[in-house]
């Protein structure tokens, strides 16, 4: 019975595990008491067998996660002498395009996503369920589906694209299309995190401030915003990393041209497809470092919240 409970906790995930752990510590789990009455306490070696299994089983997974990264860095160390001016230029061009497009995407996402997250967290309105689903869908949607969908909507013969084309606006093969693809796939990550942050704010604090004479804007600025900011930042870096890595929708919808639409992931794919593995390795390491920085930032912001 106890063992079953533990494996349950594993599938439930960390929050469930924490709940069960704290219950164990308090010694107040009614189920455990019932078991103790009818069943003998499981022998300690049964428990350590479980623990040993928990150490052995993840090893292949850990190897799978670690080896490719080690190989990438290892290969990168030997690429050193292959660091030609051409490769550095290609790297900077792709990195600059990725940095600019992802920053523009983040600015747009923050502007539109923050109020949306606030609405989703605080207001029950007609269609809020629908918007919830709409915001969640791109998270589970494969990027190639996003690419086809964007083409059908904004391509030259697409649902909205044909009207835009008639108005003289073509999105295909432009940097704007890259930003659209990035926003499509990454906005949900920000909106989800931001909505969660707004929902966690203690409403009593806001009401107290209002009672003390603060107008809604002052409440927002002095109480709500400082409380949700770490959550917004965490969501932002997640969305940012997702936008940086955007590949499928970009190559299908925006095309692949250096300096215009060839962001880092596309540059890696093009270098690989051109048989230039060394450039692909160099670009991959640059992106790996950028992702590590983002991850560190998430941890840092997360730590600041506590």
């Amino acid at each position: 019975m106890r063992r079953l409970e533990e494996s349950d906790a594993m599938t439930v995930g960390a929050p469930g595990l924490a709940r069960i752990r704290s219950a164990e510590r308090a010694g107040a789990s009614p189920r455990a008491d019932d078991d103790a009455a009818s069943d003998p306490v499981p022998p300690p070696d049964g428990r350590s067998w479980t623990a040993r299994l928990a150490w052995v089983l993840p090893l292949p997974l850990l190897l799978l996660l670690a080896l490719p990264l080690v190989a990438l860095v290892w290969r990168g160390l030997t690429v050193g002498e292959g660091l030609t001016a051409d490769r550095v230029a290609a790297l900077r061009q792709a990195l600059a395009l990725s940095a600019v497009t992802s920053t523009v995407s983040m600015a747009l996402i923050v502007m539109a996503g923050t109020p949306l997250a606030w609405l989703l967290a605080r207001r029950q309105f007609r269609g809020s369920r629908l918007i919830d689903v709409l915001v969640d869908l791109p998270i589970v949607l494969p990027p190639s589906v996003a690419g086809i969908a964007l083409l059908l909507a904004f391509g030259r013969f697409g649902l909205a694209g044909q009207w835009l084309d008639r108005a003289g606006i073509t999105l295909g093969f432009t940097t704007a299309a890259v930003v659209m693809a990035q926003c499509f796939v990454s906005a949900p990550f920000y909106v989800r995190a931001a909505a969660g942050a707004f929902a966690r704010v203690d409403r009593d604090l806001e009401e107290m401030a209002a009672d003390l004479g603060a107008n809604p804007w002052e409440v927002m600025r002095t109480i709500t915003m400082p409380l949700v900011l770490p959550g917004l930042l965490a969501g932002l870096v997640l969305a940012w990393s997702r936008a940086l890595g955007e590949f499928g929708a970009t190559i299908m919808f925006a095309g692949n041209f250096p300096g215009i639409t060839r962001t880092m992931p596309l540059a890696i794919y093009s270098a690989y497809g051109s048989g230039d593995l060394e450039t692909a390795v160099l670009l991959s390491i640059a992106l790996l470092v950028a992702s590590a920085v983002v991850l560190a930032a998430v941890r840092y912001v997360g730590a600041g919240r506590r």
Binding site: G155, R156, G172, F173, G255, N256, P258, S270, G273
Partner: peptide, 20 residues
């Protein structure tokens, strides 16, 4: 030139779609 594709069929696809 607005896009450089991975193989010739990707070129054909962009034209078939009417994007190019």
């Amino acid at each position: 030139v607005v896009s450089e594709e991975e193989d010739v069929r990707d070129v054909l696809a962009k034209v078939e779609l009417g994007e190019a």
